[in-house]
């Protein structure tokens, strides 16, 4: 059992430890649309614990990479393997209920994503979260308490009855983030969660990310914000033109980038 405690920061000693979700490996993964490859031969293994930041120019394929991991798209060629197999229709297979933050029914997908353009429902803030809890099959009796927890987490208590789509950009992003956390995911994928947010709103989101990390949720985040990358990253995946240009620890990446593309990107040059 002790070999399965590699998952960062979960104290589940009183429970049979589930098979860890991670690492996830991509082996020669290609993704194409209409015959044109958008991701070429991506091989990458993402392990538990470290906060992984994905960087790269616009159109490099960062969002596609996240959507592959979430299971929203499937590789055209190649293989994506989780240590513990799951698919979004059935949720976790073989894992016992309970995840990084505990207590979710095993039907909940163990991976959550905050899309680059999150879609909020045409309902109030609270109703958006309640909907997510209902979809996750959280028992009715527990929903109210979970709702309060999530509202507090996102600092949205005062906005609970406001139509979600009338929230400010930063508030919408906070709502989308706590909604993704409603599933108590073991892995959280964030696609530019703070693009176009002011420093304070950015700080709030980073706080949410940090606290999930501390609770043991694996963080994978796409960002263009260098400062943010430096604050959050333990390791950096650099994507360029549909390929992984490098995958290095954060210190190495920011001081001595290994690839030509990353060097150019970091020095503010155009990566062609």
């Amino acid at each position: 059992m002790s070999t399965q405690q590699g998952f960062a920061g979960i104290g589940q000693s009183d429970r049979t430890a589930p098979t860890p979700l991670l690492p996830v490996s991509l082996e020669n993964v290609c993704f194409g649309v209409n015959g044109a490859d958008l991701l070429h031969d991506v091989s990458l293994t993402i392990g538990p614990g470290n906060r992984t930041v994905i960087m790269g120019p616009n159109g490099a394929g960062k969002s596609l990479l996240l959507r592959l991991m979430q299971g929203l798209i499937s590789p055209t060629r190649g293989k994506l393997t989780w240590r513990r197999d799951w698919n979004s229709r059935q949720g976790t297979q073989g894992g016992t209920p309970g995840s990084a933050t505990g207590g979710m029914p095993s039907g909940a997908p163990p991976v959550s994503i905050v899309l680059q353009r999150p879609v909020l429902l045409r309902r109030s803030v609270a109703a958006n979260l309640t909907h997510a809890l209902r979809v996750l099959r959280v028992p009715r009796a527990e929903r109210a308490a979970r709702l309060e927890e999530l509202l507090t987490l996102g600092n949205l208590q005062d906005r609970r009855d406001q139509p979600a789509r009338s929230l400010s950009g930063g508030e919408q992003q906070r709502l989308a983030t706590v909604r993704a956390l409603a599933a108590s995911p073991e892995m959280l994928l964030l696609d530019e969660p703070t693009a176009s947010l002011d420093p304070q709103a950015t700080h709030a989101i980073e706080g949410l990310i940090q606290s999930s990390h501390e609770r043991g949720t694996k963080i994978v985040m796409v960002t263009h914000d260098m400062g943010q990358a430096k604050r959050i990253a333990d390791e950096v995946v650099f994507v360029s033109q549909g390929r992984i240009a490098e995958f290095t620890p954060a210190e190495t990446f920011f001081t001595q980038p290994q690839s030509e593309e990353a060097r150019a990107y970091l020095s503010g040059q155009l990566v062609i």
Partner: peptide, 22 residues
């Protein structure tokens, strides 16, 4: 809503009540 719903594990017919309400 499709991609958002699928990411939450909400598929096909199960999404209908949510869609009708919205």
């Amino acid at each position: 809503y499709d991609e958002q719903f699928r990411s939450m594990g909400l598929f096909g017919a199960r999404a209908v009540p949510s869609l009708l309400w919205d």
